[in-house]
Design a protein around this nucleic acid. Structure first.
Lengths: 337, 337
DNA sequence: CATACTCATGGAATCGATTCCATGGAATCG
DNA sequence: CGATTCCATGGAATCGATTCCATGAGTATG
């Protein structure tokens, strides 16, 4: 199957390659007849310009790279969708790279994206160093999303990791909880660190118990959420409320509660992160700390477009909001052994 | 920031472009010294070959396209992940296209993929016609996944849409249900059609009620699942069990039950499709009809590689399996008004 | 009427890598 | 030792589109 080139179109239209190219890319210096002939020929032959050849000549590929930990995580799935749709509206394709929570794979994808000469990259970075340095030094426009590396000066869109957690802790203490367990994210990520700090600040501010044993360090994966729930519930003096730092760990933790016959709500208050569909299906539905993921994705693309255009946009924060649902009812003292 | 080309590497190594290229692409006819010099120069300069230029000369791009309805659907999220990981192991990048349940966007992405000269496409097609025809006529290797278009001869990997549903209906009737409502998928998709047919066959085989009013036609989206649940539960003689044809509609339907205070399990038996995390969190966890999504994704890639290599693999079916959980307990007759 | 100017056009150069082909030196064989 | 083969190498062509530049036709201006 021979591919049709612009030469074929030009021949069919009786003009030169140059004229054909001008017509097809909307250059003003073209005559009525040339336009008609070329467009007709292109349509008839089903001409599809070779993107490789075009990108080689221009230095733009109309493609951005999106580097995420894992699309199976609903948070990043939604983010991927938002970014892709927004990029599309600017005429850009999105090249996804699933780092798969793995620095080596992230490096590999950075390599591919640089080879592909993407016009920009939106990344939720893991670990600093490796090819991430090269990416930044390469001069390719980069915007960080969800996570930040403070070793690197890069415009970013991150969730507000403070307000939501403060509100959640305030809410829980107002409902009578003093022992609030926390399943934290990895301290190698800014999101993990900031949320843990906010939790500690909030405990101090509200006067709730601050035992170090109430904190479990997870890795943003479901399995570690499950482990965290087990560890915290097995404490001699277990928490009466749990707060988890992301959706996957929340899923793991809720699973453990179900296994053990612990009724979320009456037996144990629970606050999850991210307002994903599933949390609304659980009975009672979960109280969550939510961020507008769509806005985050859109904003990241807008900022990247600005950087590509030569601007240097300021970093942004997406506000976090506590959505109170059935999983955090009034705490009944008498239930405490 | 000037990009480093192979010319720069060649100059730095004191050889010609041709030799540099041979060394870097592992051509056998190279001397020890040339190899050392070129590799050192390439490393020192941080040379990254321009994928556009390479693809232009070779006719391979080492890229496949993946055309899906929506990555936010956990089923397709998992599928995307499986495909991407498998493709990576073959040294291929995956270019995602989110058709967003929208034929126009699908067409747009097919266009881009053809322009990008992807080496092959894995697609869960929606609607026949449009650019899908052009894609197939273009000679680019294509494999269908999840869905099939019977107007087109294309190797495919599809779920077994019969066994699981038959088992589910058998299971429900064995537990005493006679009125089994069905929230069907769109009849424009093979998956939607086949599952509905299986449901009807299974009803006939088990002697359960076959009223047409027990069937609601949805569109594989959460909202239509909710609408389906409302419609079916509002029947004068409502079903005692519900079966939904995909995960999103299941989510919608479960949401309606929660809203109305209908206890899944005791009040209404429920069988969902796809074994996604969320269904295990619901209390009681949902009985589901599951397919091995990972296997589906891997097989699709393997088949595409075969087509690219000139083979014509036979189509495959991934077995469906009923996983019985708490949402389908024994039906208690006395509950029926 | 001559000069300047606009404007569509085609030829040729270009982007960066791969690959064909010719060349020259070393190794091998009778 | 001469003829043949082998092999690393560099020059040049190539992939398909865009774009610079020169050209010539047509129009406006003094």
């Amino acid at each position: 199957m021979k591919q049709i080139t612009i030469k074929d179109v030009a021949d069919a239209a009786g003009v030169s390659k140059a004229t054909a190219s001008r017509v097809l890319s909307g250059h003003p210096a073209t005559s009525q007849e040339a336009r008609k002939a070329v467009e007709a020929a292109a349509g008839r032959l089903g001409f599809r310009p070779n993107a490789q050849a075009r990108s080689l000549r221009k230095t733009r590929t109309q493609t951005i790279g999106l580097l995420l930990p894992d699309v199976r995580n609903p948070f990043f799935g939604d983010l991927a969708h938002a970014v892709e749709q927004r990029a599309r509206s600017f005429g850009y394709m999105t090249l996804f790279g699933n780092a798969n929570e793995n620095v080596a794979q992230q490096d590999e994808y950075i390599d591919v994206m640089l080879s592909q000469r993407v016009d920009g990259v939106i990344a939720a970075p893991q670990g600093d160093g490796g090819n991430l340095d090269q990416l930044l030094r390469s001069g390719v426009p980069v915007v960080f999303v969800d996570r930040v590396l403070d070793t690197m000066e890069v415009p970013s869109v991150s969730p507000d990791n403070s307000t939501g957690i403060h509100d959640a802790v305030k809410h829980l203490t107002a409902r009578g909880h003093r022992r609030i367990g926390y399943i934290a994210g990895p301290q190698s990520t800014s999101t993990g660190r900031e949320r843990l700090r906010s939790y500690k600040e909030a405990l101090a501010a509200t006067g709730a118990d601050t035992d170090a044993e109430l904190i479990f360090l997870g890795d943003f994966q479901a399995a570690s959420g499950a482990e965290g729930a087990r560890t915290l519930l097995d404490l001699p003096n277990p928490p009466t409320a749990l707060l988890a730092a992301d959706s996957l760990m929340s899923i793991g933790a809720v699973g453990v509660c179900n296994e053990r016959g612990i009724a979320i709500g009456p037996d144990l208050a629970f606050v999850a992160h991210d307002d994903i569909d599933a949390f609304n299906l659980i009975n009672p539905p979960l109280t969550v700390i939510a961020h507008d993921i769509d806005a985050m994705g859109r904003l990241a693309v807008d900022m990247l477009m600005s950087v590509i255009g030569g601007g240097s946009p300021a970093s942004n924060t997406i506000p976090g909001r506590l959505i109170v649902r059935g999983s955090t009812p009034e705490f009944e003292k008498e239930r405490q052994s």
